[in-house]
Write a protein that binds this DNA or RNA. Structure first.
Length: 397
RNA sequence: GGGGAUAUGGCAGAGUGGACAAAUGCAUCAGACUGUAAAUCUGACGGCGCAAGCCUACGGUGGUUCGAAUCCAUCUAUCCCCA
């Protein structure tokens, strides 16, 4: 395998990266890899705490792609064991542990999502249960002796929790050590992670040294904000866009972010192709373009445009979509509320339905002024819209 | 092991015997407006009832009281201090 000149590689790698620690070591590694014609091991780890990889993860995976294209070896670590403990990073509470089945299911979905971005070449996937499932106490104690409590407590998230009197369990202290040990097993040369992974990844260097291994270089990528514009994008905050999500959903979610947040998304997600966005003065058009670009990346361009069309029909023109199946509902001696309950499959409580009616949020065939006493005619197809996003076609029999 | 503090709705956080389905903020939902599922404004926001009202809810259980989120007992959980 022929490698690019190390200096050139470094230039490419540095793009859209927050920080590299230490940068000169990275160059050294690239140089020796170049001379010996052996690829570097690039580690990135994910805990399978959810089934979806989301846009936040893609920043990292795209960077892996960069390394892959440069000919290096990608070590994708699925933390199926560590997921059971829960990464305390950025937490203000102890994370609830996950059970084995969920972890297993999630792990399986990761691989195919991963290869939406990466090629299969030079990618190795590791599960850390392989070495942690029978990790014995002696080893654990030995590992624990390599770090001290004072340093752990200096970590910002632990410090805050400690000072405000919240609980920190001993297992959470162990987590960073395990992540660090992964680097030992994988002979990691470079570990990628969000800036919030600073502590964990740097601890990897320390532990590798203690095991008399070469130390990895830490490479930090920007953190993507969640849809709320406050917290980081994460499944557990329910503020994410998953790359496996329906195009319509992705489109909608993008349209729902604030104009301000859109700018920040463009900057973090498309820092390399900012110029494509420059032609758009109008925030509406810009947002649509962002949505199309994203959907095209993880689905197809065709789907992206159809999602756009769908959005415009539904929300701009407020027209009723065609592709809604007609539900047949037995309406004999049922009240309006009971009928709504039935065709919405109880997505609303009765009190909610009443409120919606009161707020004029339910419209039937474009009529909004409804009362609880409304009695539909039989054998007629009704177009029913509840709120902005729920459409039903119902025929009462 | 000893002493102390705390536990409230999706989250944060008031309330310390009746006026409490429980202030306020965030989140959520809806309406108006709009070039946006943006911003802004308005309203709703436990369940059941057309309604009067009823039921469930302030960590669990059991009491005191006409009446308890509020008082007492006990249990549980978390935190702090001492050892």
């Amino acid at each position: 395998m022929e490698f690019l000149d190390p200096e050139q590689q470094l230039e490419i790698i540095k793009n859209n990266v927050e920080e590299i620690i230490p940068e000169n070591e990275l160059l050294d590694k690239l140089k020796s890899s170049f001379e010996s014609k052996t690829p570097l091991n690039i580690k990135a780890g994910f805990d399978p705490t959810s089934a979806d990889l989301h846009l936040g993860h893609t920043l990292l995976i795209k960077k892996l792609k960069v390394f892959q294209d440069l000919g290096h070896n990608i070590c994708f670590l699925i933390g199926d064991f560590t997921a059971k403990i829960g990464d305390p990073t950025g937490r203000d509470k102890t994370r609830p542990p996950l059970n084995n089945e969920i972890i297993k299911e999630n792990s399986e979905t990761y691989e195919n999502q991963l290869f939406k971005i990466l090629n299969k070449n030079n990618v190795q996937i590791f599960y850390n249960s392989n070495w942690f499932d029978d990790f014995d106490l002696v080893k654990l104690i030995n590992l624990s002796s390599m770090e001290n409590v004072a340093r752990l407590l200096e970590r910002d998230d632990f410090k805050k929790r400690y000072q405000s009197g919240d609980s920190i369990t001993l297992t959470e202290f162990i987590y960073p050590l395990l992540q660090a040990y992964d680097s030992v097993v994988l002979d990691s040369d470079i570990e990628l992670g969000g800036t919030d992974q600073r502590f964990n990844i740097l601890l990897g260097r320390q532990i590798q040294k203690a095991f008399q291994k070469d130390q990895q270089v830490a490479l930090f990528l920007p953190i993507l904000e969640g849809l709320d514009g406050k917290l980081k994008m994460s499944k557990s905050y329910k503020n994410y866009i998953g790359i496996n999500e329906e195009p319509k959903e992705i489109f909608g979610k993008i349209m729902s972010i604030s104009d301000e947040l859109m700018e920040r998304y463009i900057q973090t997600l498309y820092r390399d192709s900012m110029d494509e966005f420059e032609g758009y003065q109008n925030p509406l058009e810009k947002k649509k373009f962002l949505a199309i670009k994203l959907i095209t990346e993880y689905h197809t361009q065709e789907m992206a445009f159809s999602a756009k069309k769908d959005f415009e029909e539904k929300f701009s023109k407020k027209s009723f979509p065609d592709d809604i199946p007609v539900l047949k509902i037995e309406s004999e001696s049922k009240t309006f509320i009971e009928l709504i309950e039935e065709f919405t499959e109880r997505s609303f409580s009765r009190s909610e339905i009443k409120r919606l009616i009161k707020d004029n949020a339910i419209q039937i065939n474009n009529v909004k002024e409804l009362t609880l006493q409304f009695v539909p005619e039989k054998n007629v197809e009704y177009k029913i819209k509840i709120g902005k996003r729920n459409f039903y076609k119902v025929e009462f029999v």
